[in-house]
Design a protein around this nucleic acid. Structure first.
Lengths: 334, 334
DNA sequence: ATGAAAGCGCTAACAT
DNA sequence: ATGTTAGCGCTTTCAT
């Protein structure tokens, strides 16, 4: 900036005014400054500007997700990025990849870089860590999970209602033995989906059979195995409900391996690419991850800009997409 | 930092030494400083540190891709992030989403934030913009495309050899009319894959038929339409080669719509989730995007740290994965 | 082993 | 309308 000032033969402050579009500079000087900046290929140093500014906002936010390759999180990322960019914010990203250490590292790194806010899917450990950052003025919005003590906004799918709708869809067409494959039960989201499964059964007066429930199943391979075990039972289910996209894919493989994909019905939670091209096409309860990302960004920006209203849970509705696998009828009663 | 110094009753410089693990502080003082930092919940201000430091490296890099939701770029993102984190770098991300304006904005934003380097898949316009940034010391690595004038490292799949292998796979099993659906021809990558298609034909002495070539096809819907048009020809192809993952999916839809998925062979470039679960399973030429991301990060970090060797193209091999769709034989000669 | 002072690129506060 | 000076949080340089 000093170089530009020298070249344009004005004071540094005048350059600052022109660069930031502040009033009080004559057209002539402004043009001289712009020309000098062009010649020197000048780029404002945003970080230096932040350092000096009164409110010190860095106009950047951090997104911490389990894995950017998971299409659900990738879509959240895109929704968030679009909204953030509209608001003038940049996005730092990090994948946790099941490593608690890495999670902490990411929070610390982003914090040292003075992000104005963080969007995270928290486990209860992390909520503690985040509490410290928040005392330093970092704003937090939770996605995909609602922490035990709600100390900040959270944006989640309507997990319970969505799961309930999916399972009721099966029960309504006559299924009485509906198995469930669910993720780690300490994850709030997984628990909610399980409750939806339970509620659907209660609503239809169908008793629950614990042998049909595989919980704490994490990842596609584990799901293939778990679904397989249940399908191989002496008294097997006539339908499956899988509570997460990777689990659904795992279950499809298990059904295929047994040639049961046209006999046993399947409803999955969370849509995935090509689900409509499988045989049969897979019925899913679709989430709206783009929207989750967008809302998270907007809540975060509102908070950064001073919104002090009490923390809220923002619930994004889900949509049941009947495609075939969920409409297979139960075998004629024997 | 001043607060910590006051609390520990030492000078600012001593705090700085402790925080940065520099020698020359007695154990006793160091412990006092650490305790004060803990009590005050102190976080070093990385940006201030960068501003003052001699070499002024921000230890951050920017990744600019077309769309973080595309699994190919998502995987690159993950590979890049993992390697960057190992090297102590943070990652800023941005999706271009087919907008040239946005592309420029992202470059400027990242530049103003003083990233040390950028990883981008460039179009020729952008290469100009980037040249300016590079004069300011920003290092660039290209991915997925090789620009006309090679002024920086590039990391790409072996597009030509991969495409050639895929098409030869079809020709070797007797196909003589192999159609091609390819992306915008100004994209270097698309052009290379087309050349692979041409080379395969030359190697097998099979003449090219321009009516079987749909180029400049962008996105899944366009591919469905383009593949459909070719399949509806009076003298249709017996096999398809699709040069990008979205195009492959589009072609699958076109085949399905006509009930031809078991008659017309299909080989796609770039693998995609569930390609093995479709009916028939889709034969693909798989890329290794994780590896592309990793190598890009490593080249970038080496350059940032002063590697001045001439720019190089790093070619990542591809793998033909025969799964079924590519092994459908041509109909018995009539 | 410890610290005081200057200054990175910029903006706030106050001149002129 | 334009400029001067101080200082953001930190590291460098140079003392002690």
């Amino acid at each position: 900036m000093a170089d530009v000032a020298r070249r344009a033969e004005v004071s540094i402050k005048t350059v600052s005014r022109v660069v930031n579009g502040e009033p009080g500079v004559s057209d002539e000087l402004a043009e001289r400054v712009r020309e000098a900046a062009r010649q020197l290929n000048y780029r404002p140093n945003h970080t230096a500007s932040v350092l000096r500014k009164r409110d010190g906002r860095s106009m950047s936010i951090g997104l911490i997700v389990e894995d950017v390759v998971n299409p659900f999180f990738a879509a959240i990322h895109r929704g968030l990025e679009a909204a953030a960019m509209d608001g003038g914010y940049s996005v730092l990203t990090g994948s946790v990849l099941d490593s608690t250490t890495r999670e902490r590292e990411l929070v610390e790194t982003f914090s040292a870089r003075r992000v104005d806010g963080l969007v995270v899917s928290p486990n209860d450990d992390l909520v503690e860590t985040l509490a410290l950052e928040r005392r330093n003025g970092v704003v937090v919005v939770y996605i995909d999970r609602v922490p035990g003590r709600l100390d900040a906004d959270a944006v989640v799918s309507d997990n319970r209602a969505g799961a309930r709708a999916g399972v009721e869809h099966l029960l309504a067409s006559g299924h009485r033995r509906v198995a469930m494959v669910g993720d780690t039960h300490t994850i709030h989201t997984a628990e909610e989906r399980f409750l939806g499964y339970v509620e659907a059964h209660a609503a239809h007066g169908v008793p629950l059979d614990p042998t049909l429930q595989a919980r704490d199943v994490h990842g596609g391979d584990a799901a293939t195995e778990a679904a397989g075990r249940i399908l191989d039972l002496a008294d097997p289910p006539t339908a499956l409900f899988t509570a997460q996209n990777m689990l659904t894919v795992g279950a499809v493989r298990a059904l295929r391996a047994r040639g049961l994909q046209h006999q046993v019905a399947l409803v999955g939670f969370d849509d995935f690419l090509l689900s409509d091209l499988l045989d049969p096409p897979v019925t899913v309860v679709a989430q709206d991850p783009d929207e989750i990302g967008r809302i998270a960004a907007e809540r975060l920006m509102a908070r950064i800009e001073g919104d002090m209203s009490p923390p809220q849970v923002h619930v994004v509705p889900t949509t049941l997409l009947p495609r075939g696998s969920g409409e297979l009828p139960p075998p004629a009663a024997g």
